[in-house]
């Protein structure tokens, strides 16, 4: 499978997202195209990862987990970086839709982070020999999961939308201090986890299949974040319209935060 096909998919996803951002009139349908691309990309990407990719010279078939684990963690970091950006922006321009974006990205980031770490544990058992170990990378990943669970819990405990937005922006900025340490931990310190790989360290077919899955999961990340953003926006509209008539469980946080 030539590498350019994966880059075409990646560019298509990014381009569609650009259209979605630039032309508000297209927002009703662009996400549907992205959803189709994402679902189709994951289905075909799974086939490529499980059937087409060659077995690794060292790890055999177990390394096929990489095609899911790596893009999931990338997407988690991407979403959480957007959460950081939106948190900073909110403190400058008190716009509640920025708060809705932070909320959406934190949840999507925590979702991808959780399954990414879970897959890492499943991969670790047959290759490292252990499900888990407190090396710098895994420790910072665990901190990321609990810190952002706390962030989502905070949102549940504050009723006033303005205060909730400001406080969670503050917590989001402080929480983001873990992200650079998480990313660079494998470079700064000796760890059990291997360093970030790259196109130069992979067989071209393996790299292009990884890129294909990354593009597919990126499309799904955009769709998830956009849909979650719409839910958050609608909740805010209700809160502003009828602050006193709110049911106590509004501003729902899904089970990931538990």
């Amino acid at each position: 499978m030539p590498t350019w096909t994966s880059y075409v998919l990646l560019l298509a996803v990014l381009g569609l997202f650009g259209v979605h951002l630039a032309v508000p009139a297209t927002r009703a349908w662009v996400w549907k195209v992205l959803a189709v691309l994402g679902v189709g990309g994951v289905v075909s990407g799974s086939y490529l990862a499980l059937a087409v990719a060659p077995a690794d010279h060292e790890m055999g078939d177990v390394y096929r987990i990489m095609f899911a684990h790596v893009p999931e963690v990338w997407m988690a970091l991407l979403a959480l970086c957007v959460n950081f950006g939106a948190s900073v922006a909110f403190l400058f321009r008190k716009d509640l839709s920025l708060d809705a974006l932070s909320e959406a990205c934190a949840e999507v980031g925590l979702f991808f982070g959780t399954i990414g770490v879970l897959l890492g544990a499943i991969w670790g058992r047959p290759t490292w020999g252990v499900w888990w170990d407190w090396d710098p990378r895994l420790t910072t990943a665990a901190i990321m999961l609990v810190v952002y669970s706390g962030y989502l819990a905070l949102r549940k405990f504050v009723d006033d939308p303005e205060k909730r937005a400001t406080w969670s922006a503050v917590v989001g900025i402080i929480a983001a201090s873990d992200l650079p340490i998480l990313w660079f931990s494998v470079r700064w310190w000796r760890s059990l986890h291997q360093r970030q790989s790259g196109a130069g360290k992979m067989d071209p077919t393996i790299w292009s299949i990884l890129m294909w899955n990354t593009a597919a999961l990126m499309a799904l990340t955009i769709v998830f974040a956009y849909q979650r953003y719409r839910i958050a926006q609608a909740t805010r509209a209700r809160e502003v319209a009828l602050p006193s008539a709110l049911p106590p469980d509004s501003g729902d946080v899904p089970s990931e935060a538990a």
Partner: peptide, 16 residues
């Protein structure tokens, strides 16, 4: 510790 495909299926199953 041997294992190959069952771990792969578990991981992709979790993802799907």
């Amino acid at each position: 510790i041997v294992g190959g495909w069952e771990f792969v299926w578990a991981a992709w199953g979790v993802t799907w």
